[in-house]
Structure formats: structure tokens, C-alpha cells
């Protein structure tokens, strides 16, 4: 194994937690710290309900593969999507907040996918060359990630 690489990677994870997601952490902590189990399960129930999204999840999946989202994210169902730069998108459909700042709902997510900095200027996730329609398909795909 390549030790320098490993060390660098380990550092990358650590720093990421501290700096990149600092805001997210704070918000998450605030939101979740008071949650009781009961509350959580109601929340869960609301999020599990199918969201009405016009996009085609299969198309969205292809787009996620074609754009290369997996370079930064771990995404179930996308070969090679084992990125460690951003948060894993496993169970993304049940995620409460996008990047810990805006509630996870289709319009916001669509905007986030194509132009994350417009919602959170400090983010490391760049603006991506994804059209509005494509973003809708990607959102549809992301909402299939239940487990």
C-alpha cells in the first residue's frame, strides 16, 4: 500500500469533518440533539412517503454515472462510486437536510445538484454542468436511495 496516500486520505477525512462540513455539523447537532425516538419515527414516516418528482430515476442514474458524482460520493447502485470527499448518498431519500442547511425536498435538491454554491457558498461542491431537466432526473434517482 501507499502509505503517503493513506495518511493523506486519513487527514482528508479528518479535516473534512472539521472544516468543510462545519456548518452542517452544527445544524445537524442542533436538529438532532433534541429528537426523541418517537419524534424521529414520525419524521421518518413523512420522509418515507413517496415524493412526487417528475424525473425518471433510471435516466437520473445514468446521469449520475456520466457526470462522475461517484468521484466524491459513495452512491449505491453506481459502479465505482466510492468517493470519500463528500457525504455518502446511501439512504439519501431519508436524509433530513441537504448539506445540513436546507430541508431535503425536490426543488431545493434540484438546485443543489446543479448549483450547490448558490445555496451554500462555503461548499466544496462545485456548480455542475447539469440542466434543469437532468437535475430533475437525478433528484428522482436520489429519492430511490431508501436503504
Amino acid at each position: 500500500m501507499n502509505e503517503p496516500g493513506d495518511r493523506v486520505r486519513a487527514r482528508s477525512r479528518r479535516e473534512h469533518r472539521v472544516s468543510g462540513g462545519a456548518l452542517a455539523c452544527v445544524l445537524m447537532a442542533v436538529t438532532l440533539s433534541g429528537c426523541s425516538d418517537a419524534l424521529q419515527s414520525t419524521e421518518q414516516h413523512r420522509l418515507d412517503a413517496p415524493r412526487t418528482v417528475n424525473g425518471d430515476p433510471a435516466k437520473g442514474r445514468d446521469l449520475v454515472a456520466a457526470v462522475g458524482c461517484g468521484v466524491c460520493h459513495t452512491i449505491p447502485g453506481i459502479p465505482g462510486a466510492t468517493g470519500i470527499v463528500g457525504p455518502p448518498l446511501t439512504t439519501f431519500a431519508r436524509r433530513t437536510y441537504i448539506a445540513g442547511i436546507v430541508p431535503n425536498e425536490p426543488t431545493a435538491l434540484s438546485a443543489w445538484v446543479s448549483n450547490a454554491p448558490s445555496l451554500l457558498p462555503q461548499t466544496a461542491m462545485p456548480r455542475l454542468p447539469i440542466s434543469h431537466d437532468d437535475a430533475t432526473h437525478i433528484v428522482a434517482f436520489l429519492y430511490t436511495l431508501q436503504k
Binding site: 503517503p4 457526470v67 462522475g68 468521484v71 466524491c72 470519500i84 456548480r127 455542475l128 454542468p129
Partner: peptide, 22 residues
């Protein structure tokens, strides 16, 4: 190895040893 856009460039810069070790 990866398509070229701002996202993959950013990802490569910060995790090149994860993506292509060695």
C-alpha cells in the same frame, strides 16, 4: 479514468490517492 467537469476535478484534487492509489 473519470469524466472531466468541475466536480470531478475537485474530487480528484482532494482524493487522488483514493481514486488512483500509488
Amino acid at each position: 479514468s473519470f469524466p472531466n467537469n468541475a466536480g470531478t476535478i475537485a474530487g480528484w484534487i482532494v482524493s487522488s490517492q483514493h481514486l488512483k492509489p500509488g
